[in-house]
C-alpha cells in the first residue's frame, strides 16, 4: 500500500490545499534598488537596522517579516500553532533566535537556499495532515553575515569571478491555514540530493542546476501535469550561469517548462547592480515569492506558479576538504483554485 496523498516517489498532493492567507517580505537596501521595490513590504535603510551585528539583523528581519505577515490579517503570534523556519547561518541561529521571540512551537530546518520551498512544503503537510490549523513558514538571509561565514571578511579586497553570486539580504514569511481566501498550495515535490561533482563554490548555480532539473522533471512526471500548466516555473537561485545550464539540461531530458521559465536570482536584481551571475541565499526566492509572485497570483495576474527553491548543501569545511557540492531543490505549486 502506497501513501494515500502521494504520487510517484516524491510528490505530495494536498487533499484540501492549504490556503496562503498572508505573507510579508523585508529586503535590504540593494534589493530595494532593484526592479521590484514597489512589491516589497519593507526596504531597510541600511544593513544593520539598528542592531549590533549582521547576525542580529538577519534574525530581526525574519522575526519582523513573520510579525508583519500576521499583522496584515490582524493576527497575534499566539494565533499560529507552529513555526517552520531555517536560514544559512551555522546552527540556523537566525531562525532559532527569531523563534525565541515568537515563542510558538518551532521546527528548525536546514536546506540552505531551498528553505523557502522546504518550509512551505512541511507547513502545508502539517496543515493538510490535520496537525495544525495555521502554520508560519519563514526564512531569511543577510549578505554580510553569509559573506563572513562562507567567504572573506567584507573589507578585504578580493576580486569576484563572473560566475559568483550575491547573497540577498532578504526575509520572507508566509502563513498557511486550513481554509480561507488566497492562493493555495496544491502539491509539492520533495527533492533528492544530487551531486554532479562540481567543486567550485564560486559557481553554485552550476552545482544546483541538475538538482533543479531533476525535481522539476519528477514534478511533471508524477503529477501528470502538462509542461505548460504553470504560468511561471521559477527556480530559487541558479542565477544567470545556472539558468543557462539548466535550460540546456532541460533540452537533454526532453522537457521544456513553458510558457515562462526563470530564476529568482536572475530576476531579483537589475543588470547594473554588480552582482555578477545574480542573487542567491534563502532570502532570494523568499522575497521574490512574498514580494511580486504572491501578489500577482492573488491578484489574478498569474493563475499559478511552481516555485523551485534550490540549495547548495556544502560548508566552508567541506570546500576546504575538496569535497564536491551536493545540491537539492524542492518544488511547491501555488495556484488559485
Amino acid at each position: 500500500m502506497g501513501a494515500i496523498n502521494k504520487k510517484g516517489r516524491q510528490t505530495f498532493i494536498f487533499a484540501d490545499p492549504p490556503c496562503i492567507i498572508s505573507w510579508a517580505s523585508i529586503v535590504g537596501p540593494k534589493e530595494g534598488e532593484g526592479p521590484w521595490s514597489d512589491d516589497f513590504d519593507q526596504i531597510l535603510p541600511d544593513y544593520l537596522w539598528g542592531e549590533a551585528s549582521w547576525e542580529k539583523t538577519e534574525s530581526k528581519m525574519l522575526r519582523e517579516a513573520a510579525k508583519l505577515a500576521l499583522s496584515k490579517q490582524g493576527l497575534q503570534t499566539s494565533d499560529i500553532e507552529l513555526m517552520v523556519a531555517g536560514d544559512l547561518l551555522n546552527q540556523i541561529t537566525s531562525s532559532n533566535y527569531a523563534a525565541r521571540e515568537i515563542a510558538v512551537p518551532f521546527l528548525g530546518l536546514y536546506g540552505a537556499c531551498s528553505t523557502m520551498a522546504e518550509s512551505l512544503l512541511v507547513a502545508a503537510a502539517m496543515v493538510d495532515g490535520g496537525y495544525c490549523e495555521r502554520v508560519l513558514a519563514a526564512t531569511s538571509s543577510h549578505h554580510y553575515s553569509a559573506e563572513r561565514q562562507y567567504r572573506a571578511p567584507v573589507e578585504q579586497g578580493v576580486q569576484r569571478v563572473p560566475s559568483s553570486q550575491w547573497t540577498a539580504t532578504a526575509a520572507g514569511a508566509v502563513i498557511l491555514q486550513k481554509g480561507g481566501s488566497g492562493p493555495r498550495l496544491s502539491c509539492a515535490t520533495v527533492g533528492k540530493v544530487i551531486d554532479m561533482g562540481q567543486t567550485d563554490a564560486a559557481n553554485m548555480g552550476a552545482a544546483m542546476a541538475p538538482a533543479a532539473v531533476d525535481t522539476i522533471k519528477a514534478h511533471f512526471q508524477e503529477t501528470g501535469r502538462p509542461h505548460d500548466y504553470y504560468d511561471l516555473v521559477v527556480t530559487g537561485d541558479l542565477a544567470a550561469v545556472g539558468l543557462s545550464v539548466a535550460r540546456e539540461l532541460f533540452v537533454r531530458v526532453g522537457l521544456v517548462p513553458s510558457p515562462n521559465f526563470s530564476d529568482c536570482g536572475v530576476l531579483l536584481y537589475d543588470g547594473l547592480q554588480d552582482v555578477d551571475s545574480g542573487g542567491s541565499g534563502c532570502g532570494c526566492s523568499a522575497c521574490m515569492l512574498t514580494g511580486p509572485f504572491l501578489r500577482k497570483v492573488a491578484g489574478g495576474e498569474m493563475r499559478n506558479i511552481l516555485l523551485v527553491s534550490t540549495g547548495a548543501l556544502m560548508s566552508p569545511t567541506t570546500t576546504f576538504q575538496k569535497e564536491s557540492i551536493p545540491a537539492i531543490a524542492h518544488a511547491v505549486a501555488i495556484e488559485n483554485i
Binding site: R148, A152, P153, V154, E155, Q156, G157, V158, Q159
Partner: peptide, 29 residues
C-alpha cells in the same frame, strides 16, 4: 581598499598594502 581590490585583484593584493588589508579586514570584521 576592498572596492579597489574588487577591481584591481592582484594589483592591490601583492603590494605590502594588500598585506595590511588582509590583517585589518578580519580584525574589523
Amino acid at each position: 581598499y576592498d572596492n579597489l581590490g574588487a577591481k584591481a585583484g592582484a594589483g592591490s593584493v601583492v603590494p605590502i598594502t594588500g598585506f595590511a588589508n588582509a590583517i585589518v579586514a578580519p580584525a574589523m570584521e
